[in-house]
Amino acid sequence: MHMNVVFSESDEVAARLEELGVSEASLREAINQGHLQRARLTPNHPRIFPGLEMWGWCVAGLRDQLRPLGWVAHVAGNYESTINNALDLAIAVASGDEATGIAHSRPSNRSKKGKNTVEAVEGNRQGDMFFELLPEKIITAPSNNDTWILLHHTDVHKKEIRIEFSKPWDIGEDGKITSWAERIILCSISFDDDIQLEDFIEPDGMNININITRKAS
């Protein structure tokens, strides 16, 4: 069942995040740590590095922040996530487009995702397929393959990073998420750094395919 629920008021955001075993402060701090590390870079760094730096520190920051709450690092192949076994929840980190963090919008991921993300989204759909048939006490519990995405977008014109914690529902053949079951809008992070994102490239990180061919003799 596709609910497409958006939480944006502070009280409802806090309540829903508590149900999911996280806090707004911990999610925002994870993104802030990634931003601080990226802001140290110069134009002399490799073109792909700012995206890698931001993503890597956000993932590490998220795991550090959530460890006291029962979350641990999880790697399946090249798919990096942070999971809570007690809640059957997983969190991935990704950059989003300009619609990220805006309640009345339809955001998507900025970089194309591969088969691991597709499988995670499909897991969300399958877990909710028979939602209406479940007893009430089971409905309130997370499904086994519940994957959420900590989505962030750096707006260089407004000098803010918009953030949302959302559950993807569908993904297109182009690797872009097309709809969400739930979106939780978090407070943005303001910054004064002069960041250039014209050549910003976020590594897929979670879905890396390497083709090896034999050199012709």
Rank of each mutant, 00 (worst) to 15 (best):
I163P: 12
E164A: 14
S166C: 14
S166N: 05
I184H: 03
I163N: 14
F165R: 14
I184S: 05
G175E: 10
W180H: 08
S190T: 12
K176M: 06
K167H: 15
T178V: 05
A181P: 01
L186C: 06
T178H: 04
I177C: 02
S188Q: 12
A181I: 01
E164H: 13
F191M: 08
W169C: 05
P168L: 03
F165V: 10
S188H: 12
I163C: 08
I184T: 02
E164Q: 15
F165K: 14
I189K: 05
S166R: 12
T178E: 12
I189R: 03
E164N: 13
I177P: 02
K176I: 00
S166W: 09
I184K: 02
G172M: 06
T178I: 04
L186M: 06
S166D: 12
S179V: 00
S179L: 02
S188P: 02
G172W: 07
D170H: 11
S188D: 12
W169D: 09
A181V: 07
D174F: 01
I189H: 03
I171T: 09
S179Q: 04
I177D: 04
E182N: 06
F191C: 08
E173R: 08
R183A: 01
I171C: 05
W180E: 02
R162E: 11
F191N: 07
I184V: 08
E164D: 13
I171A: 09
D174P: 03
S179W: 03
W169K: 08
S190L: 06
S179Y: 01
L186K: 08
S166K: 09
R162W: 10
I185T: 02
G175R: 07
S166P: 10
R183W: 06
E164W: 13
A181Q: 11
G172Q: 04
D174Q: 03
S188N: 12
D174K: 10
S190E: 13
I184W: 06
D170S: 14
I189Q: 07
A181E: 11
F165W: 11
F165H: 11
R162C: 10
K176E: 03
S179G: 02
C187P: 11
T178L: 12
C187Q: 13
K167F: 13
P168H: 03
K167S: 11
G175C: 04
